[in-house]
């Protein structure tokens, strides 16, 4: 099977790439949101919303997704060190956009010992905290298919996206001084191919397609898991960030935090909202009004000038004091 040339977004990661040239999409015409008032398309071409579905219950922790990610994005991370845990590297890095996080979970309800493996990486939020926090126009964009992408030529490496993200995903490169994260393989999706990680996954724990298809697939998987005794199985598509374009099927959807701290109700922090919301216009207005007020008073108020009498008084005072005969003067009230 190959992808039909008229499709705007790939429907699967497993299909072979198109056999004839496909005009790439995901350009400026598809930008629906852009950081710090960067340019957005006037009439953005609507693309079918895409999503990656990560079925945690099917993952075997082989890290083929990590290898595929390194290979496609050509990030060349350094060889790591073994400190006795399975995570490798030990955290997301500017060269590792996705990471298998391993948790050993002692289930108190069943007494079972469970090995939870979650593929961590950018969730491609519908309401991205990174994009909200970013001060550089056009450094973070969201396309009409839902992908959130960093445009490195506009990135200034300040790290505000790290503070904005509710999932702790972006990493700042100390070599290139730009923020890095999973692109959802926007450069593959743009030409009809699914993400590299999904293509490489041997158990189809990672699947890719339209958000609609992935939600339907997740429902099937959740039903199957429930029939196998996982009563709390469910789809992780958190509403606090408007839903995400990377979703998880979790066998314990009631306790997402057991999957190495997956947030239960992620949303953009109120501190970030206030900083990027009211603080900006109020701050600019306060400074502007103060400057205009000061300028107006400087122009229209005559100012506090020293008179000739003041100079004469000064001469008198200095002469008196120098002579050493200080005279208490009637307007000395309050002086020590």
């Amino acid at each position: 099977m190959t992808i039909a040339p008229n499709m705007d977004s790939p429907r699967t990661a497993t299909a072979n790439p198109p056999t004839h040239p496909v005009p790439p999409n995901l350009g400026q015409a598809h930008v629906v949101r852009s950081s710090a008032g960067g340019p957005v398309a006037e009439n953005p071409q609507p693309l079918t919303e895409v999503a990656k579905l990560i079925d945690v219950s099917k993952c075997i922790g082989c890290k083929a997704c990590q290898s595929a990610c390194i290979e496609w994005n050509d990030t060349q991370p350094e060889v790591g060190v073994n400190v006795g845990v399975y995570e490798n590297p030990h955290d997301l890095t500017p060269e590792m956009f996705t990471l298998m996080r391993f948790t050993e979970y002692d289930n108190p309800d069943t007494g079972d010992f469970e090995w939870l493996i979650r593929k961590d990486g950018c969730m491609h939020c519908a309401e991205p905290g990174c994009l909200k926090a970013c001060p550089a126009p056009g450094a973070i964009v969201q396309y009409s298919n839902g992908i959130v992408d960093f445009i490195h030529e506009n990135c200034i490496g300040c790290g505000y996206c790290v503070s904005g993200c509710p999932f702790n995903i972006p990493r700042i490169s100390q070599k290139t001084h730009v923020a890095q994260k999973c692109t959802l393989c926007s450069d593959r999706v743009a030409v009809g191919q699914g993400p590299a990680c999904a293509k490489a996954c041997p158990t189809h724990a990672i699947t890719f397609g339209t958000k609609e298809d992935m939600t339907a697939l997740a429902a099937e998987r959740v039903e199957d898991l429930k029939s196998r005794g996982y009563d709390n199985a469910g789809l992780y598509d958190p509403a606090g960030v408007g839903g995400t374009h990377v979703m998880y099927v979790l066998h314990h959807n009631d306790k997402p935090q057991i999957y190495d701290g997956l947030p239960e109700d992620p949303k953009i922090s109120d501190v970030v909202r206030n900083w990027k919301g009211p603080a900006k216009p109020v701050g600019i207005a306060a400074v502007g009004l103060a400057a205009i007020g000061a300028a107006a008073m400087a122009l229209f108020h005559r100012g506090n000038s020293v008179s000739q009498e003041d100079e004469a008084e000064a001469r008198e005072l200095v002469q008196e004091e120098l002579r050493g005969a200080p005279v208490e003067r009637p307007h000395d009230k309050g002086s020590a």
């Binding site: 100079e311 000064a314 005072l317 004091e321 120098l322 002086s335």
Partner: peptide, 21 residues
């Protein structure tokens, strides 16, 4: 100027004069 000092910071001016007595 002395006038400025007298008008705005008289205790300062007075003390300087006394110090230079």
């Amino acid at each position: 100027t002395g006038g400025w000092s007298w008008r705005h910071h008289r205790k300062w001016l007075r003390e300087l004069a006394r110090r230079q007595r």
